[in-house]
Design a protein around this nucleic acid. Structure first.
Lengths: 344, 344
DNA sequence: TTGAAAGCGCTAACAT
DNA sequence: ATGTTAGCGCTTTCAA
């Protein structure tokens, strides 16, 4: 690659002049020389070396993003939103994908290996002189690792650190479940079955809380029999649908769309009309919700907002050099669709 | 951040010695000094500046990836596969996402803006001294842009350059469609309807060719009436299903899973048993294929293979400094599932 | 065993 | 209007 030196030699000026001209400094050279310099640069396909430039300026205008797994269904959207925010602020992103999913085959627990990988990934980003780091989790859970490099702006997204030194950006599961339950209650449903995820899931716990809160406010006693625990897979939705329908529920709130799909399958098989005889709500708002017939009501998690919020938090740390470690809870959007009907 | 100089000062040796020790050079210092240097480095959270290092070494061991849109459903997998391949070869990747989709709202045609963005993105990667670039398209189509920087190893994935100077990695649509049609023929189906995408789509064209080839080989005359053109959306699948069933087809080959879903919807509504009265094949092998009941037969595109193949091609260009611009066609995997039954 | 010195490509303060 | 110079943090050759 051509360097500034080559151009200087060819045009008979100093490297300083070339640099100034190329950076658009007014009056760095006479108009004739300036044009000549530009032309030589173009003809040599000159491209400034950003390693050298950043090294010199001690500034990269870059923030690092660590993803636990880029192929997770929501991660690309978050990344995209961060990137968009950064671009508007003259920053770029450097992505470091840990590929946890592919590497350890679903074993997401905090293993020492994971810790080492976390550290190596963060260090690598720091080595590249990023000015801050956003860590995107694969699912909502606690992370026991903190960057060992002190004093680097850091934000957790879709997960949170055990030691709350840095902020976390999350969505408000409890509130969303509360709203969903209220929609069902407003439609006259009293006996609402729940297909939860495993109790070990934080998402499940919080959604359950929202569900119970809504019932409580309407003075409907919580019936533990109506809450069943699936494994997020379609099949468990199918089986639990049978159980719950046997108990006479008029509505089912499944904690993800896949299990809601199981409910659909069961109902279709038994000729039970969804949206009429039984109301169904899902969670995640996957594409399939709208593909289904009747369209599945669901909860949309604010992925893009989480992305931009985390970028915002990083910038405020970079600018103000002060961390506000308050976690941020973003609101989900509830989409009521045809799968919800009035009780009759 | 602490530098090598700080460590040198604190330990009373030269920066050269620190550098050597930290890089594990045997006998760069006496064992006592060496240990001391290591310890000071650790206590200062020393992290080498990779800008400086790469600048000095004139080597980054990095390849750039340009994605048209990271949120496209297949892009993350390709990226992941490239990354995995690179990691095994001691390289890292630098990702540059053009965000075409978000930026131009589905307008993917070769606009001048797109050309500029392409160029700026590639230049930015070159500025970072990547040793090669992989360009990942959003869908299969011709790209009129070539990197204006001559002589940088380049590979196109999921698209191909009009001027075939660099290799392209693609999948063999025609062959897959040929195989699908044969599966249906082997099951005794003779009147096979096709729900194609728009004729402007290269994918559609090639799949059509494979379909016709299979019919031809079995001496079944091609009936243009049985090929209908949808718009890749579910609704068009639904409507065309009605038309084709009216023409008495016993099998339908939809050129994507979404339109196949439309077929499912229509059949469910009319009480037509899929896999028995009518056989259905989709394309793309989306997750939903297995979620559906009966499970939808479909064609899986070799995303990960495309990723590793493109990485392989980049490395061979980097190593051998010679471009073999032959496009590479990778084979798809046909998944025959319950939605396909024998003709009766 | 250790270090001095040069230099990667660039910028910026300070001459002239 | 143009150039000189120093230096960002690191590696590496060569000398001591």
């Amino acid at each position: 690659m051509a360097t500034i030196k080559d151009i200087a030699k060819l045009t008979g000026v100093s490297t300083a002049t070339v640099s100034n001209v190329l950076n658009g400094k007014e009056g760095a050279a006479g108009p004739v020389k300036a044009r000549e310099i530009m032309e030589v640069a173009k003809s040599l396909h000159y491209q400034p070396n950003s390693l050298a430039k950043n090294l010199k300026q001690k500034r990269t205008c870059a923030i690092g993003i660590v993803t636990e797994d880029l192929t997770a269904f929501n991660t690309p959207d978050i990344v995209d939103a961060i990137e968009s925010y950064c671009e508007e602020n003259g920053y770029e992103i450097i992505l470091a994908n840990m590929r946890l999913y592919k590497r350890y085959d679903h074993n997401y627990t905090d293993t020492p290996t994971h810790g080492q990988l976390f550290d190596a990934t963060v260090r690598n980003l720091v080595a590249k002189q990023v000015e801050g780091i956003i860590y995107i989790g694969y699912h909502y859970r606690e992370i026991t690792y903190l960057p060992s490099m002190i004093n680097i702006p850091f934000v957790y997204v879709y997960c949170y650190p055990s030691d709350p030194v840095y902020p976390a950006v999350l969505f408000d599961d409890e509130r969303a479940a509360y709203e969903v339950t209220n929609v069902l209650l407003e439609n006259g449903h009293k006996k609402i079955g729940v297909i939860s995820g495993p109790l070990s899931s934080l998402n499940a716990q919080q959604r359950l809380r929202g569900y119970q809160k809504a019932l409580y406010e309407q003075s409907i006693p919580y019936n533990a029999e109506l809450t069943r625990y699936g494994d997020w897979e379609r099949k468990s939705g199918y089986e639990i649908a049978r159980e719950l329908l046997g108990q006479g529920v008029s509505a089912i709130f499944a904690f993800n769309d896949l299990m809601a799909l199981g409910v659909y399958m069961y109902c279709m098989e038994k000729g039970i009309k969804i949206g009429e005889e039984i109301s169904v709500f899902g969670y995640d708002n996957r594409d399939i919700c709208e593909w289904y017939k009747p369209a599945l009501a669901s909860v949309e998690m604010p992925m893009r907002e989480m992305g931009s919020k985390s970028a915002e938090l990083i910038f405020s740390q970079i600018k103000r050099r002060k961390v506000d470690s308050q976690p941020v809870l973003l609101r989900c959007q509830v989409h009521t669709r045809e799968s919800v009907g009035r009780y009759r």
